[in-house]
Simulated assay, not measured.
Amino acid sequence: MTIVVTTPTGHVGSRVVRLLLQAGVRPRVLVRDPGRLDAGIRDRLDVRRGDLTDAAFVREATKGARTVFWVDPTPHTDADPIGTSQRTAAPLADAARAGDVARVVLLSSIGAEKRDGAGHIDGLGRIEEMLDATGADVLHLRCGYFFTNLLLDVDALARGVLTTAAGPHAPMPWVSPRDIGDVVAARLLGESWKGRVVQGVYGPEDLTYTQVAAILTGALGRPIGLEVISEDDVREGLRSAGLPPGAVEGIVGMTAGTRGLKPDPPRDAVTTTPTHLAGWAHTHLRPLLGPATPA
């Protein structure tokens, strides 16, 4: 069984790689910089060095694989994020259509089912459609909001501020990438699914940003206040940082386009995963903030 893992050094991919090794599988990993792989496992992997935006590399590296785990590597800062996501995944779709790849597990997102109006998430919707048209067995894992996105706000959290342009009282799924990795590995190893399958990965509960601020206050040992800003505030900040217009709208659209969205599929026992935000924040976020400033 040949299983290809893209972005094997990321929050999800690194977990998937370890679980596959523990299951007795030697995964084929596609990586730009092999030096970023864990030195303790590097010799146990089939390492293919290259760039996922290189169509020839993707076709050659996935050829003959039973299953591919595809993570879109397109950064949100790309000038044409939706188009780049689609173009980057095209060689994989070609490989699946040609029969060089039998199964694909796609790391997708809530909102991809909209197909339009969800910013850069629309790129994942396009990839879902491309893969659906190949005739291969395809599994779309539509994930909630990653806990690890909070790592982008460490400086603000150290000052006691959680900032969002989302509605403060609108619940949304929050999920640990480790839990996502567990689901991915189980699906890569499982042989029972066929055709087109869509599965949600939503964490243990839906949370509002107001609840997240309260959870972080307890987990981080410091008061965390919620600052709600407008979409125009976000746009101005991104423009000031030098991002091109396509990237700005791709980022703003992800929040605007999923506001009030009811995830598809709905939450149930299969889509619910165990790791709670409080424990994750205490373990992974609290050590990065330093001591709290006395009131």
Rank of each mutant, 00 (worst) to 15 (best):
D155K: 06
T148P: 15
V154D: 03
R126L: 05
A156S: 07
L92H: 06
F147E: 02
R142D: 00
L131E: 03
S176R: 12
L106I: 07
V175N: 08
W174S: 00
T148L: 04
L162S: 07
P73Q: 01
N149F: 09
G135T: 14
P91Q: 02
I127S: 14
D153Y: 10
G123C: 10
A102N: 10
T88L: 02
R126T: 11
D78N: 10
G123E: 01
I82C: 00
L131D: 07
P171N: 00
L151S: 06
N149G: 04
R87E: 08
P75F: 04
M172W: 09
V161Y: 02
I180D: 00
E129R: 15
A96E: 03
G111V: 01
L141G: 01
D179S: 12
A156E: 00
D72T: 12
L139F: 05
D100R: 11
I127T: 14
A90C: 12
R142M: 02
K114M: 08
R178C: 12
F147P: 13
V138G: 02
I121T: 05
A98C: 04
H76C: 01
M172E: 02
L150F: 04
I121G: 08
M130S: 13
G181N: 14
A90I: 04
D116A: 12
W174I: 02
A165C: 04
L150D: 02
A133R: 15
F147V: 05
A93R: 12
L139H: 08
A79V: 14
S85K: 15
R159G: 13
T148Y: 05
P177W: 08
G167F: 11
G83R: 12
L150H: 01
L151T: 02
Q86N: 11
P91V: 00
L131W: 12
I180S: 04
I180P: 13
A136Q: 14
N149A: 11
D100Y: 12
I180A: 08
R178W: 06
V183H: 10
M172T: 06
D94P: 07
P173W: 00
A158E: 06
P75V: 06
M130C: 07
A89I: 10
P171C: 00
H169G: 08
H120A: 08
A95I: 08
L152K: 09
R142N: 01
L106P: 02
L106E: 06
T88V: 13
R97L: 04
G83S: 11
A112M: 03
H140P: 03
